[in-house]
Amino acid sequence: MDREAFLARVGEYHKEGRRLALINVTTLVPAAAPAHGAKPEAAATEASVGETAAPDQFEITWVFENDKDATLEKIREQVGPADIIPSISEFFGAAFLYENEIHELFGLNVEGINLDLQGQLYKTATKVPFSHAAVKARLEALAAKTAAAAEAKATTEAKA
């Protein structure tokens, strides 16, 4: 991502008096991973969102809100796990909670947070629970379990 242009745009929103409403990260899991209950035809025809997902990418969205007309302004970027994301906490002081959260839950590196809790915000049992490896591992375990249950059901039915 273009760091300078990004920060300039955030600075502009700050000057306009917008409010930081949300910083959201989505782990983009490529379609090859077993999607639980997936309907392939629907996914193929209407995958309008995140269709360009390269392997191991995150989609990060900054949402700014204007109180006067209640409009949302979004900046959206795709980043890899090794990319460095500039902190916006110099403009929006409230950003530190979001940024600490995305560092801890998604493993993204955010640079220059004004109150950096060093990955000690939630202290989760699974380290980086929304990393690609963790998400894939969970989905695969779930798919294996569903398959095993279906097989067990089939064998009991066959016996009966």
């Binding site: 959201n24 989505t26 782990t27 899991v29 999607a35 639980h36 209950g37 997936a38 309907k39 629907a42 996914a43 209407e46 995958a47 969102v49 995140g50």
Partner: peptide, 8 residues
Amino acid sequence: NGTKNLER
């Protein structure tokens, strides 16, 4: 994403 489970 068009499956039974939401993406996010």
